[in-house]
Design a protein around this nucleic acid. Structure first.
Length: 664
DNA sequence: CACGTCT
């Protein structure tokens, strides 16, 4: 009775053996991503949605490719009269904001074009008298903005970001990647796995490069308490340079034990300085040792990509002075760099579980040499969804290695990990009262469903940064849209977005161009943004820990902050219990838009009511070989197909529902 | 049930 033969369909009896990545075999969007990833094949790209009257998504020749058949001369004349005969023969849609009057905006010229080509004559013209346009005719099938100094013949076949020097130096063609932007520890880029060419530092002898400047400003007070804890002078100096001279309580508590090589269980809310608490001892331990190819000696696991980046960025300068190499291993980022880093040998990984497991399965990483394993946000890492991945990874590390586990709370699941993987751990807790700091006020507002939108908008329209937490990804998109429609500049942040979008949004929130972040719990933990004055929980948290974590985004570093939780009548009771568990003292009060309490919280500002649009992203730095981030991960559907309740590959529906489906 | 975490 063979029922079907689709290799990738769920077998009814579940007995068909599938290869490793069975879960993803039926993903059509995997193919799409793969297609997206090949930026060097722009001509086949079917979709460049280049609307002629709007900002083009892609630059230059892609716009041309989109309309290959249209010769320049018969192209419709644009409404502005400049496209008459002394103008270029083709539209300049590839320029940013091409829909605007172009002539008075010379600033958008691309720098890499010789200026003399641009001014008053159509640059594609080869004959000054305007009789012939042979080059213009050629251009229909290739980039307009050709660099004049490059051979023309190559261009159509070559990816746009190719390095120029490759034409000159074919002998270096072993690989196509450009220079690594993220790792300066070595310059080699070949494929021979067994030759470890010495890094520049090594060739010169001792690590000279970064040490000297540190010594320069080595004004470390005698009573520096980091030094007293046993931190290496170089690290102390580097910290002092950033004004970090006094350890936080959790650091004082955990560092000595961690340095002594013991397993440590540190309990403290995010923002209490945990990163340095485990970071410094880890760096000390890894410093000076030898790391083999693909066998890192340290591993820091964190639950979200943003957090991974944050930890990575915080430790990077410190790692540098200790001559420790580190690498961010997380989803949504290109594989090749991560694999290459591992191959070359990297001391310390800062990783999200999924990608690291994947790399281990691929053989790109081997955790058998991990001397220090750190679990950050362990209480989150140990919940139902993460636990299997975490144990998988920890199982791959040698049991005699040191384990540092930092967590906000110590519930059952964390306890399980502690019992299984930590030996004789020392436990240190700092005041867990962090969440209820006196500078933070809590408000529980019981509202009518019909008022939720307007109340949210009113609260979010205050001056200063605000984070609005919601329960679902779709909800985040929807509320962000609603807020913008009401005149509040807000952007959504959730795991269903491209990593590029996540980064962009977070950047804009940090730099202030988008003051309101509408986020799922992806932003609940660890994300540090200064001066978030208000946290609005448009949906109440699922549990008390989430309340504390969400609340912890405000009133950081001694600042003031408020947490407002909107409750529908039926959520009132649950919230009261949650507040008790969280140690939050607040009484639910009824509220409606315009109430005194609300205006007090907002300072009286109201939404303008006029729709606003998200600002364009800041001009990107060079997107090196990456060509842009992709890898949506935007799959709303499961991910883990436990439950096995049949082959309901529900497809999850479209990712972006365009708001408006509501209507109170 | 939702969230997060590999493509």
């Amino acid at each position: 009775m063979t029922q079907h033969h689709q290799p990738d369909s769920e077998s009814a009896d579940g007995r068909i053996k599938k290869p490793r990545h069975k879960k993803y075999q039926n993903q059509s969007y995997g193919e799409r991503l793969a297609a997206d990833a090949t930026y060097d094949a722009p001509r086949e790209d079917p979709k460049p949605v280049v609307r002629e009257d709007s900002k083009p998504v892609v630059k230059g020749y892609r716009a041309e490719q989109a309309r290959p058949d249209r010769s320049r001369d018969d192209r419709p004349v644009r409404s502005d009269d400049r496209s008459s005969d002394e103008r270029p023969r083709y539209e300049r849609t590839e320029r940013p904001y091409a829909g605007n009057a172009r002539d008075d905006r010379p600033a958008f010229r691309r720098d890499d074009r010789p200026q003399q080509n641009r001014g008053d004559r159509p640059y594609a013209r080869t004959e000054r008298d305007g009789k012939q346009y042979p080059r213009a005719a050629e251009r229909t099938d290739r980039p307009q903005y050709r660099r004049d100094d490059r051979p023309q013949g190559d261009r159509t076949e070559r990816p746009r970001f190719n390095r120029d020097d490759r034409t000159d130096r074919p002998q270096y063609r072993q690989d196509d990647r450009g220079p690594r932007s993220d790792d300066r520890s070595s310059y080699r880029r070949d494929d021979k796995p067994f030759v470890r060419r010495p890094s520049q530092e090594e060739r010169r002898g001792e690590p000279i490069r970064r040490e000297e400047p540190v010594i320069d400003l080595g004004t470390v007070a005698d009573d520096n308490q980091f030094a007293a804890l046993g931190i290496a002078p170089r690290l102390v100096q580097r910290l002092a340079r950033d004004g970090i001279t006094a350890p936080f309580p959790i650091q004082t508590a955990t560092i000595p034990d961690a340095l002594a090589g013991r397993d440590v269980l540190g309990r403290g809310q995010t923002g209490s300085g945990k990163t340095l608490g485990f970071g410094l001892p880890t760096l000390m331990r890894l410093s000076g040792g030898h790391t083999e190819s693909r066998r890192p000696r340290g591993m820091i696991l964190v639950p979200t990509r943003e957090l991974a980046m944050q930890v990575h960025d915080a430790l990077e300068p410190l790692a540098h002075v200790m001559n420790v190499s580190l690498k961010l291993i997380a989803g949504g980022l290109p594989y090749p760099k991560q694999i290459e880093s591992l191959r070359r040998g990297v001391d310390l990984l800062i990783a999200t579980p999924g990608r690291l497991i994947d790399l281990c399965e691929q053989g790109a990483a081997d955790l058998g040499a991990v001397e220090v394993a750190v679990l950050d946000e362990a209480d989150h890492m140990c919940d139902m969804g993460f636990m299997p991945a975490v144990t998988t990874l920890l199982d791959m590390t040698p049991p005699e290695g040191q384990r540092l586990l930092f967590s906000a709370t110590l519930d059952n699941d964390v306890d399980k990990i502690v019992k299984t993987y930590l030996k004789d751990p020392v436990q240190h807790s700092t005041e867990s009262g962090q969440a209820t700091v006196s500078t933070m006020e809590h408000h529980l507002l019981v509202i009518e469903p019909a008022h939720k939108q307007s109340l949210t908008a009113e609260l979010a329209s205050r001056d200063g940064r605000t984070i609005v937490f919601v329960r679902t990804k779709l909800g985040a998109d929807r509320i962000a849209t609603q807020l913008r429609d009401r005149g509040v500049m807000a952007a959504a942040l959730h795991g269903g977005l491209t990593q590029g979008m996540r980064n962009k949004t977070l950047d804009q929130f940090k730099d202030g161009s988008v003051p309101v972040l509408v986020a799922t719990d992806v932003a609940a933990r660890g994300i540090h943004v200064d001066d978030v004055g208000l946290v609005v929980q448009a949906d109440p948290p699922a549990e008390h820990k989430d309340y504390l974590h969400r609340a912890g985004r405000t009133a950081r570093a001694g600042g003031k902050g408020a947490v407002v939780t909107l409750l529908l009548p039926h959520q009132r009771r649950g919230m009261i219990r949650m507040a008790e568990s969280a140690g939050v003292k607040a009484e639910p009060v009824r509220a409606r838009p315009g109430d005194e309490l609300v205006t007090e919280l907002t300072g009286g500002t109201k939404p303008s009511g006029y729709p606003v649009k998200l600002p364009a992203p800041k001009p990107q730095r060079f997107s090196k070989g990456g060509g842009g981030k992709r890898f949506g991960s935007g799959r709303p559907g499961r991910g883990d197909n436990r439950g096995s309740s049949g082959p309901r590959r529900s497809n999850g529906g479209p990712r972006r529902t365009d708001g408006k489906s509501y209507q109170h």
